[in-house]
């Protein structure tokens, strides 16, 4: 089991703005943000960068021991991972909201969501680098998470948290399968010669949750 920590993530204003846009908007999709909004985002990013503590934990498993079989049957090895940005940013966001500073709160929340995704991306890439010798001449899937790709939240989270000591990076699983801190990501990816390379990438367009705020296909 390996822990990845002491790294920094980069935040992209375009992605933060995407998260702050109405998912329904048909017009003005490319509308430029005002200078005052960009300034506020910069201020919130400065606050966030001091509070984010990105960390990840992972291990590699023999895929034949994992269920549900339809997700792992074509795979030889599977990496399971949990990562988080920690609880400090979430707390600051709640403080803003409680004080009625909703504008600051929603910007910090968008930054936190983006940070969690960037952390997952960094951890994913670092694992691939760590395993570079094992994956020579093999294919690997994109990462996929419980709750997506027909992997039920309950089964997926229970398996990942049973096999990884996520509490060592400060992440706990509630009885309702919710991770605490909220801005945490659990995921898997498969390695093998015949893996389904589209696994983890076809999620949104084939998903039934058309109103999902995280949906990337409109």
């Amino acid at each position: 089991m390996s822990i990845i920590e002491d790294f920094q993530i980069c935040l992209n204003d375009k992605e933060i703005l995407r998260l702050l846009r109405s998912g329904n908007s048909t017009k003005a999709r490319n509308k430029e943000a005002s200078q005052s909004l960009l300034h506020e985002i910069k201020e919130m990013k400065d606050i966030a960068m001091d509070l984010i503590k990105p960390r990840g934990i992972y291990n590699i498993f023999n895929s034949k021991n994992l269920v549900p079989r339809f997700l792992f049957e074509k795979s030889e090895k599977t990496v399971l991972a949990v990562c988080t940005i920690g609880e400090n940013l979430e707390k600051r966001c709640s403080e803003f909201i409680k004080k009625g500073k909703l504008s600051n709160g929603v910007i910090l929340d968008a930054i936190a969501s983006h940070s969690a995704e960037e952390t997952a991306e960094y951890v994913n890439q670092t694992i691939l680098n760590d395993l570079s010798e094992e994956i020579i001449e093999k294919d690997f899937t994109s990462r996929f998470s419980p709750g997506y790709c027909q992997w039920t939240l309950e089964k997926g989270q229970n398996m990942i948290f049973k096999l990884l000591q996520a509490e060592s990076i400060g992440v706990e699983l509630s009885s309702s399968m919710m991770m605490n801190p909220i801005k945490s990501v659990s995921f898997a990816f498969n390695i093998g010669e015949e893996v389904d390379k589209e696994l983890g990438t076809r999620g949104c367009e084939d998903c039934d949750l058309v109103n999902c705020v995280y949906r990337r296909v409109k």
Binding site: L17, L20, R21, S22, N24, S25, T26, K27, A28, R29, K31, A33, S34, L37, E40, G100, K101, L102, S103, N104, G105, V106, I107, A110
Partner: peptide, 20 residues
């Protein structure tokens, strides 16, 4: 304006703060 994409969420929230 938010639904049309002319406003971002923080701008809508600032309007709500001013209303409150």
């Amino acid at each position: 304006l938010f639904e049309e994409g002319e406003f971002f969420l923080p701008e809508l929230m600032r309007s709500a703060e001013a209303m409150k």
